[in-house]
Design a protein around this nucleic acid. Structure first.
Length: 574
DNA sequence: GCCGTTTTCGGCCCGACTGTTTTCAGTCG
C-alpha cells in the first residue's frame, strides 16, 4: 500500500475538493489542501505521531489533526463521508479535467445534471453546452480536448505509483514459504515513465502458495485470472497486477521474457533462430536436439546469444543489441554516481521544509554537494525579494561551513519570461553559485517564439541549467512547442546543461528526447527539484530516465567532482 | 481551517491568462 502519509494526503485533498464542490469556504478548502500537501511531504510517518506530533506538521491544526486521528483509528472520517454523500463521484472527476474547476463542475451538474466525464462528453457532442452562461464554443472545445488528454493517459499510472506498489507486493511475496526469488519485471523494470500494468515474477517449485498469497493481498479488489502459472488481479487503485511463477532454474529466461520490451525480445528471438536456437520464457533451447542450453540467469541467456547482459532500461530496441555486438553498449549512469543535487526548494518559496531540514536530509543521503535553488521574484506567487534571497545566502554560507562532507551552493530557479529574459540584472545574478532557468508560464507561445525564448535563456551567461526543458506534466500538459534541435545546439554552443527533472510527474527531458540532445554534445543535470525532504528520493526516477536516454556518468554534470562542476559553472562569464 | 501576532481576529501566494462579459469570473501556476 502507498505510504500512509500519501493516503492521508489523498483523503485531505478529496475533502478540500468536496468543500469547493459543495460551495464551502474557499479558504477552508485551501487550508485542507495545504495540510494535504504538507502531510504528503512530511518526513515522519503520520501513523507514528501522537496528536501533539500531528499538530507540529505545518498547516495541520486541531481540526485536521482530529480528522487524521479519526482516520487512523477507524479507517474513515465522518465529515468526509457526509460530503461524499452530497457530491456524485463523477463530479469530482470532472473537476480534474484541465480548464474545468469546481465552479464549472458544479454548474454543469446543476444546469444539465451532468455527473460523469462520459455524460459531459455526450453533452459536448450534442452541443448542449452552448446555452450555458459563461460557456461558449471555445470553452466547450477546450473541455473536449482536456478530456482527450486525460483519457490518453488513462489506464496507465505514473512510474512512482506503480513502483511503490510493486515493491510492496514483491516484499510481501518474497516472504511466502517456498518462494525462492521474487522481482518486478515489465515496463516497470525498464523504468518507463508511465506503467500500464505491474508484472511480478516469482520463482518457486510449487506456485500454489504464491497464487494464494497474491489473491489475498489486502489491496486486491478483484481476481481476474487465477491459474497455476499466472494470476491476474486488479488493485483497489485500478491497476492490473500479473504474477507469474516459474521454476527457479528458469528464472533468467523468464526475467528476460517478462521484462521485454516486446521489440527487444523479438530481436533476441530472431537472433536465436539464426543460430538454430529457440528462446522463450522457459529457456534458450537448441532446436535440433530440444536441449535447454541456458535459462537460470539473464547473464547466461544473453551470453548464450553472444551478447553481454543488457541493462533493462536499455531494452527498447533502440539499437542496444547492435551496440552490444559492437562492444559499444554504454555504461549507464547510476544513482551511486550522483554526487549532488542542483535543484532543491525550501520553505522560503514553495518548498515544505526549512533550509536546515532540506540540507540535513541531503547530507543524510550522502550527497557531496547540494544547490539550494528557490524561486525568483517574477514567479509572483512566491513573493521573492532581493532581501530574502540575500538573507538566505548568508544562512547558506554559514551552513556550508557546518557540513563536513557536503558543500552547499546558493542558487535560484529563474523564470524564463516570454522573451527569454530572466529575473534580476546581471550584477545580482553574479552573486549566485548556480542558476537554473525554467519556463513557468506562456506555455502556448508559438514554436518560433518558444524556440527564441529558450535559446536566449541559454545565451545568458548566468544561466547554467535549463530546468524541466519541455515543461510537460505527464498525462496533464503537453510539452511546449519549440524547435528543440535548435535549443540543443544552443545548449552545446553556450555550455548550458539540460535538466533531467526527476519528479515522476515531469521526467523532463524525457528519455525519447535525450538521444537527440546527446548528439549535439549537450551536458545534463539529473535533479530532483525536491519540494520536500521526501522528494530527494525521486532521484531514482531521473536516473531511470537518464539510463533510458543512454546517458553515461561523464555526460551528467552532477556526477562530477565539485571542482570540475565549478569550472563548468564559470561558463563564459565576463 | 490555520496561523501569527500589530495575538483571539483577519488575513490567507498574487498576478496573468482565457474566454466571454464590455468589466469580470474562473482557472492556473
Amino acid at each position: 500500500m502507498a505510504r500512509l502519509n500519501e493516503e492521508v494526503e489523498a483523503l485531505l485533498q478529496e475533502y478540500s475538493d468536496l468543500i469547493l464542490l459543495t460551495g464551502g469556504d474557499a479558504y477552508r478548502a485551501r487550508a485542507y489542501e495545504k495540510a494535504a500537501r504538507s502531510v504528503g511531504g512530511y518526513h515522519a510517518d503520520v501513523g507514528e505521531l501522537d496528536f501533539k506530533g500531528l499538530l507540529e506538521i505545518p498547516g495541520v491544526g486541531k481540526s485536521t489533526a482530529e480528522k487524521i486521528t479519526e482516520y487512523l483509528a477507524t479507517g474513515r472520517v465522518a465529515a468526509l463521508e457526509k460530503l461524499r454523500a452530497e457530491v456524485p463521484p463523477g463530479v469530482r472527476e470532472i473537476m480534474a479535467i484541465p480548464t474545468v474547476g469546481p465552479r464549472t463542475a458544479v454548474m454543469l451538474h446543476k444546469e444539465l445534471g451532468i455527473s460523469s466525464v462520459d455524460e459531459l462528453l455526450d453533452a459536448a457532442k450534442d452541443e448542449r453546452l452552448g446555452g450555458l452562461r459563461g460557456l461558449g464554443d471555445r470553452t466547450a472545445e477546450n473541455i473536449v480536448h482536456g478530456i482527450e488528454v486525460m483519457r490518453q493517459s488513462s489506464g496507465r499510472v505514473l512510474l512512482n505509483v506503480a513502483l511503490e506498489q510493486a515493491e510492496e507486493v514483491v516484499a510481501e511475496l518474497a516472504g511466502v514459504t517456498g518462494c525462492v526469488r521474487c522481482a518486478y519485471a515489465g515496463s516497470l523494470r525498464r523504468m518507463r515513465e508511465t506503467i500500464g500494468d505491474i508484472d511480478v515474477l516469482a520463482a518457486a517449485e510449487d506456485s500454489a502458495a504464491l497464487m494464494e498469497a497474491v489473491a489475498a493481498l489486502p489491496y486486491v479488489a478483484d481476481v481476474l485470472v487465477r491459474g497455476a502459472t499466472k494470476t491476474s488481479v486488479r488493485t483497489a487503485k485500478g491497476m492490473q497486477l500479473d504474477l507469474r511463477v516459474v521454476p527457479p532454474e528458469d528464472w533468467g529466461a523468464a526475467m528476460v521474457y517478462f521484462t521485454g520490451s516486446k521489440a527487444h525480445n523479438i530481436r533476441l528471438r530472431s537472433r536465436a533462430v539464426k543460430a538454430g536456437l529457440k528462446l522463450s520464457e522457459y529457456g534458450l533451447f537448441e532446436v535440433a536436439s530440444g536441449e535447454k542450453i541456458a535459462s537460470a540467469t539473464e547473464e547466461e541467456v544473453y551470453e548464450a546469444l553472444g551478447l553481454p547482459w543488457i541493462p533493462p532500461t536499455l531494452r527498447e530496441d533502440r539499437g542496444e543489441i547492435d551496440a552490444a555486438l559492437g562492444g559499444e553498449l554504454p555504461e549507464p549512469v547510476t544513482e551511486q554516481d550522483i554526487r549532488g543535487d542542483l535543484h532543491v526548494h525550501t520553505d522560503l518559496t514553495d518548498g515544505l521544509a526549512p533550509l536546515e531540514q532540506m540540507l540535513a536530509a541531503a547530507a543524510d543521503r550522502g550527497l557531496g554537494y547540494c544547490a539550494v535553488t528557490d524561486h525568483a521574484p517574477n514567479l509572483a506567487m512566491q513573493r521573492m525579494t532581493d532581501e530574502k534571497m540575500l538573507a538566505q545566502r548568508q544562512r547558506v554560507r554559514a551552513l556550508d561551513r557546518h557540513y563536513k562532507g557536503m558543500r552547499v551552493l546558493h542558487g535560484t530557479e529563474l523564470n524564463i519570461d516570454p522573451d527569454g529574459g530572466v529575473d534580476w540584472p546581471e550584477d545580482f545574478l553574479a552573486g549566485f553559485d548556480l542558476c537554473v532557468a525554467s519556463i513557468h508560464s506562456h506555455f502556448g507561445a508559438d514554436r518560433d517564439a518558444q524556440t527564441r525564448r529558450l535559446i536566449r535563456a541559454c545565451e545568458n551567461p548566468y544561466v547554467h541549467i535549463i530546468g524541466h526543458p519541455t515543461t510537460r506534466l505527464l498525462g496533464r500538459r503537453p510539452a511546449v512547442d519549440a524547435d528543440f534541435d535548435a535549443v540543443y545546439a544552443a545548449c552545446a554552443r553556450t555550455g548550458t546543461a539540460l535538466e533531467i527533472n526527476a519528479s515522476p510527474e515531469r521526467l523532463d527531458l524525457g528519455d525519447e528526447r535525450i538521444p537527440a540532445a546527446r548528439r549535439h554534445g549537450v551536458r545534463f543535470a539529473v535533479n530532483t527539484d525536491a519540494h520536500s525532504t521526501v522528494h530527494l528520493a525521486n532521484l531514482r526516477y531521473g536516473i531511470g530516465t537518464a539510463q533510458r536516454g543512454w546517458l553515461t556518468k561523464d555526460e551528467v554534470i552532477n556526477t562530477w567532482p565539485l571542482r570540475r562542476l565549478q569550472s563548468f559553472l564559470r561558463k563564459r562569464r565576463p
